[in-house]
Design a protein around this nucleic acid. Sequence first.
DNA 1: TATGATAATGATAACCATTATCATTTTATT
DNA 2: AATAAAATGATAATGGTTATCATTATCATA
Lengths: 158, 158
Amino acid sequence: MTEEKDLFAEYLSRNNLRMTPQRGLILDVFLRTEGHITSEELYSRVKRKDRSIGQATVYRTLKLLSDAGLAREVDFGDGILRYEHDYAHEHHDHIICERCNRQIEVIDEGIERLQERLAKRHGFHLTGHRMYLYGICPECMKRKDRKGSLRKTGHTSG
Amino acid sequence: MTEEKDLFAEYLSRNNLRMTPQRGLILDVFLRTEGHITSEELYSRVKRKDRSIGQATVYRTLKLLSDAGLAREVDFGDGILRYEHDYAHEHHDHIICERCNRQIEVIDEGIERLQERLAKRHGFHLTGHRMYLYGICPECMKRKDRKGSLRKTGHTSG
DNA sequence: TATGATAATGATAACCATTATCATTTTATT
DNA sequence: AATAAAATGATAATGGTTATCATTATCATA
Ligand SMILES: [Mn+2]
Ligand SMILES: [Mn+2]
Ligand SMILES: [Zn+2]
Ligand SMILES: [Zn+2]
């Protein structure tokens, strides 16, 4: 946590930006929050510690944290950007349950390798990727056809 | 093209919806347009043939076409939904160039297989996926560091 | 071929996450 | 202190998409 703060401070000074109480607080709260958090959620958490904080500052800081390599944007495709820790966190992809929205983090070295090869085969230099698997989680599998909260994205039948 | 129209008609009647001149025209123009088209683009094309068409109708019809299995939503992550043909078109994924936005369609059976296995390993029943690779295309590789139109998504360094 | 019932259309307003604007305040440097 | 540069927070704006709603078109039936 101190290490992350140092990294952020270094990133800021390297870019002629300034460490401020707001930025420090936002980073703190972010680091204490596991999972995939929206700017809105983070804003409401930060506001509990500093009534006067502005929502725009949270948006701005989250962007800075992403550039600094401390946060990573996660886009589940529902129109709301989420953020997760990106420092000392291994890269991973996500499986999302279309029934209950449960999300788990997964990694498959084989897939990563093949992605690299696939890009190369087409002459591309691969710099990143987004991969989201959609399905039905084990729990939802048991309680059969609860058609209740289907997500209705267009990812089904890929 | 007649086959697609039949499929659409069948889908509509199956859902107690009606085939209309507007829907027919929108499907026609959509089928004649290759690539990944936005609702806006399709709207302007359709409007050339029917001045009186409404933009909402294009949005609505595109959604219907997706449900009917004739169109597929493509989300490159820039906040604009695109659509591509989905009937008699093999599933594929995309590589997008971060410099010039060129996009190519790719498929890797090995990856598809591993995705299936990865989901199963976590107890999920896989229903679909989204995979976008980001990189630098061969052309942009040659004309070095044209930092011109960098996309600035957050997908880099996956 | 009128008549209801239902669905579709097009114009427009609303939505909503995110960005831009800008006056004011804070911070770093002289 | 004085100055310049950057950050903040309130608020307006953005822009793709969706909701609303009065009007029109379509379908089934008599
Ligand atoms: Mn994650
Ligand atoms: Mn495609
Ligand atoms: Zn589930
Ligand atoms: Zn390129």
